[in-house]
Design a protein around this nucleic acid. Structure first.
Length: 277
DNA sequence: TTAATCACCTGAGGGC
DNA sequence: TGCCCTCAGGTGATTA
């Protein structure tokens, strides 16, 4: 499932193809995903325009043209893959973009999303920061130099469990269910501990582990479960390094006691009751 | 304001 | 083999 590392890997791949290039055609095979797709506006803002940049904010990938931004979110099962032709190769191919890359070669990008939790949107103008998608977002964990202090200060007075707290994109972006469980395990913090009761020292430790976990996942090409595929259509490799996620009942990699699974705010949480307090 | 719950959606997997 | 049910989770809306 795409989280920040997967979107970062995708963004880097798409940047290599599309920055300095042009979208020649945009074909949409359905009118809506999570939201209606603004097909006409998307074509007006991006088709035929030079793509000046491709970048990521939170779990969104943005394409910048002279006239505005294309916005992609992969939701739960989304993927954007390079393909040799225009014809959909998969059942849930919802959009196909014919692209002329910066080197003058034609290629096709297919947006595939079986569960349709993804999003294709566009924004007119020169800035995106004030749009509803982005206005309330917290800092980027990979570039924030004072993430631990930020988490500590933001959490004062909060009674929500720390796992729900770090998954809140208004607090810090990009920490999804997998990496929240993994980072808390690595920092030795129990996922049910109240966010407001955790010390600055422990938040600084957690911040380091969030950053390290995300960086390692990016290096490995992202995490894969049943549906995630990267830009080339291949699975990510980070699943082999997961310490607790999806390992309920298996021995903890530190103490050998069984990893436990609980539900928190409707999500599965995996942790070691002996290593995390 | 904060926290919890629900809906959206489809495929995988288990039980019968 | 086929049907039914449950589960998975990012995000935004709704409720408490």
């Amino acid at each position: 499932m795409p989280e920040l590392p997967e979107v970062e890997c995708l963004t880097r791949a798409v940047r290599g193809v599309l920055k300095g290039g042009t979208i020649l055609e945009a074909s949409f095979h359905r009118k809506d995903l999570r939201d209606p797709i603004p097909m006409t506006e998307f074509r007006e803002l991006l088709v035929g325009e030079k793509i000046e940049d491709v970048f990521r904010r939170s779990k969104y990938m943005l394409l910048k043209s002279r006239r505005g931004f294309g916005v992609f979110h992969l939701g739960m099962t989304g993927a954007l893959m390079e393909r040799g032709g225009e014809a959909p190769e998969e059942k849930h191919t919802h959009a196909v973009f014919k692209v002329l890359n910066a080197k003058g070669k034609e290629t096709f990008l297919h947006f595939v999303d079986p569960r349709r939790f993804g999003r294709i949107a566009c924004l007119a103008g020169e800035s995106y920061e004030n749009h509803a998608f982005f206005a309330d977002l917290g800092p980027e964990p990979l570039v924030s130099k004072n993430l631990g202090k930020h988490l500590f200060e933001t959490s004062r007075g909060r009674t929500a469990p720390v796992k729900a707290f770090v998954m809140d994109a208004r607090v810090v972006v990009g920490v999804g269910n997998i990496y929240a469980s993994e980072s808390l395990f690595r920092a030795g913090i129990h996922p049910k501990k109240k966010a407001g009761q955790i010390s600055l020292e422990r938040y600084e430790h957690l911040a380091r582990e969030i950053q390290a976990t995300l960086q390692e996942a990016i290096k490995a090409g992202g995490t894969t479960f049943s549906t995630y595929r990267n830009y080339e259509g291949n699975p990510g490799l980070f699943v082999v390094d997961l310490k607790v996620y999806d390992r309920a009942g298996e021995p903890c990699r530190k103490c050998k006691k069984p990893v436990r699974q609980i539900k928190q705010t409707g999500r599965s949480t995996f942790f070691c009751a002996f290593c995390q307090s």
